[in-house]
Design a binder for these strands. Structure first.
Length: 579
RNA sequence: CGGGAUGUGGCUCAGCCCGGUAGAGCACUGCGUUCGGGACGCAGGGGUCGGAGGUUCAAAUCCUCUCAUCCCGACCA
């Protein structure tokens, strides 16, 4: 491609709307433009990068035995009503009506459609296993779209769905996708981790996220420094540590109520009693479809709402406004405690290991001192309810966990029969019995993968694309358009690079050298070839890698060294997978 | 949805407090000089100041409402 002809509007100044690196750089590099909140156009350069990721995905999906198809983006409400998600999915589902006022939605995901398709065609175990995928535009009316392509409302996703005869077979499909995903993200040049995750609204029993490590990521990952345990912090557990605790002082039969004016936070209470926060317990009221409950955790820990929701088996869960707690329960927020409460108690397992603690007295302005688990309060429901933090013991081996931030680029789920049962997608097994298909689903955010690659590969001058997804592998800079010899040489080299199938952008613009250097750096071309009048006189072509790891002068009359450099660059790129 | 902020040529922003002629830099067009890390000079073109209503002799500026965008929290590829 000739730069002079390319629709590549680079920006010198920082766009005001962008905060995050990848978003800023994608705007500046002329890859994308915003149309509305969370809705972006891909310009030619952005699309080239996107297509490169898609190509890698298709190759690896096909290699894993999956078949590509294309499902409709617009889907009838009936299917969603049949699965029960028309109501359950909520406002995120973009609902639309046709001219006859019939309800449709713009697909946020395709479990319903694929299950409908398959239930009409699959009758026998002989047709299984089956894995079908597509690369398609999804729409989710996100509460808060942000960070450019990182969380758009309209976005491109590769989604795959597997169908198997039983759980064991589904496990093999899942493993196959896990391997394929590792290959895909490795080939994209990303530093990532496959982590255990919560399965969220998609549902199902088991899932892994593929997380690209980056400080700007919205997710946090806990991983063990010794073994291979890794999990999203939403899901991550730590090893339960039993400790010796002193029994309650038999001379004191009950906790002591102490006036603690203006101590509505753990910090204030701990300061008042001159203890550390772990000598207190934190009590919080949650409301779910099952009613109110009080959750009790050690004072120095954060409640993990996902664990609470799971422990309760609730469909939804929220922290009610304090005014609502006062009104409905008559309890003073800020002075809550588990002693003598009438609503169900849900207690973190570590609370039993604390000994004497301080908690709210359920009376405004008062706390209880010398409260013991077992003597002063107890609960049928004891579970792991806290958010893990760095330094917690690994649930597998007990070594220390570390926490890193990351971007979720892929997510794989074992769905089981959740959708096949609802939509009656069944087959006949070898014994002639009718059974529901066992499903899995597997997603990759394609645009997000491009953004994540940029988050992980940039410097002050712009993007440093990994070779595999770089829109152009080579930038050829002609610094002296007026020189016929220089231009003739560049033109012939440009042709030869193209003939060899190398994606090259030839900067033939009538611009000063500085402009060309800046643009080549900004758009992240891995290899830059520069020829100017001076170089031509000396008989040299300058070859420089974007990451600064190489800067060589190549002879003009022998192109063999250039081909060797390009081969090395391509080979370098297929790094060892992160896991 | 709650909290915070911002809307002024294509882009980045000033002007707003204290009402009175709409500005700068970049980008764009033409000419000239320049040419290895985002040049310079001269001459140009381009703006219902997000929208609606109000106050006023007069509104980018003050008031009310509204829309949009961004950032912080609950959802997710």
């Amino acid at each position: 491609m000739r730069f002079s002809r390319m629709y590549l509007p680079t920006l010198k100044e920082e766009p005001a709307e962008a905060e995050v690196i990848s978003h800023r750089l994608m705007l500046r590099a002329g890859m994308v433009r915003r149309l509305a909140a969370g809705i972006y156009s891909y310009l030619p350069l952005g699309l080239l990068a996107l297509r490169n990721v898609e190509d890698i995905i298709r190759q690896e999906m096909n290699r894993a035995g999956a078949q590509e198809l294309l499902l409709p983006a617009v889907q009838p409400a009936e299917l969603w009503q049949e699965s029960g998600r028309w109501d359950f999915y909520g406002k995120e589902l973009l609902r639309i009506k046709d001219r006859n006022q019939r309800d449709f939605c713009f697909g946020p995901t395709h479990e319903e459609v694929i299950t409908d398709l398959v239930r009409h065609e699959v009758r026998s175990y002989r047709q299984l296993p089956l894995n079908l995928y597509q690369v398609q535009t999804k729409f989710r009316d996100e509460i808060r779209p942000r960070f450019g392509l990182m969380r758009g409302r309209e976005f491109i996703m590769k989604d795959a769905y597997s169908f198997d005869v039983d759980d064991a077979a589904a496990g093999l499909s899942y493993q196959g996708m896990r391997d394929a995903y590792s290959r895909i993200f490795s080939r994209c040049g990303l530093n990532f981790r496959a982590v255990e995750a919560d399965s969220g609204a998609i549902g199902g029993s088991f899932s892994h996220e593929f997380v690209v490590l980056a400080d700007s990521g919205e997710d946090a990952v806990a991983s063990c420094q010794a073994c291979d345990y890794a999990a999203n912090v939403e899901k991550a557990e730590s090893q339960f540590v039993a400790v010796e605790i002193a029994p309650p002082d038999s001379a004191v039969a009950a906790p002591l109520e102490v006036a603690t004016p203006d101590c509505e936070s753990i910090e204030a209470v701990a300061a008042f009693f001159e203890v550390t926060p772990d000598a207190t317990i934190k009590s919080m009221i949650f409301e779910s479809n099952l009613g109110f409950c009080m959750v009790v955790v050690p004072g120095d820990r954060e409640v993990n709402e996902i664990k609470v929701k799971a422990a309760l088996g609730a469909e939804w869960l929220e922290i009610p406004a304090s005014s609502r707690v006062v009104e409905k329960l008559g309890l003073p927020v800020g002075y809550l405690g588990p002693v003598n409460v009438t609503i169900p108690l849900l207690v973190d397992r570590q609370v039993s290991q604390l000994g004497a603690v301080i908690c709210g007295a359920n009376r405004a302005g008062f706390h209880l001192q010398g409260v013991y688990w077992g003597r002063d309060f107890s609960s049928q429901q004891i579970a792991d309810l806290v958010l893990v933090r760095a330094g917690d013991p690994c649930p597998g081996c007990g070594a220390l966990l570390q926490i890193d931030r990351g971007i979720e680029v892929g997510h794989i789920f074992k769905l089981g029969t959740k959708y096949s049962e609802k939509l009656k997608a069944t087959f006949l097994d070898q014994e002639g019995r009718e059974r529901p298909l066992v499903m899995g689903c597997y997603g990759i955010g394609v645009g997000r993968t491009v953004a994540a690659a940029i988050e992980q590969n940039y410097d002050d001058n712009g993007i440093c694309f990994p070779y595999a997804i770089a829109p152009f592998k080579v930038a050829l800079l002609n610094l002296d358009l007026k020189s016929e010899e220089v231009t003739a040489y560049c033109e012939s080299l440009y042709q030869e690079l193209q003939n060899r199938g190398i994606s090259v952008i030839y900067d033939d613009r009538n611009e000063r050298p500085g402009v060309k250097f800046k643009d080549a750096d900004l758009i992240g071309v891995p290899l830059r070839l520069t020829l100017g009048r001076k170089g031509f006189k000396k008989g040299i072509l300058e070859a420089r890698r974007r990451d600064g790891s190489m800067n060589e002068e190549l002879p003009l009359d022998d192109r063999a060294p250039l081909w060797r450099i390009l081969e090395a660059l391509a080979a370098d790129d297929s790094r060892i997978p992160s896991q």
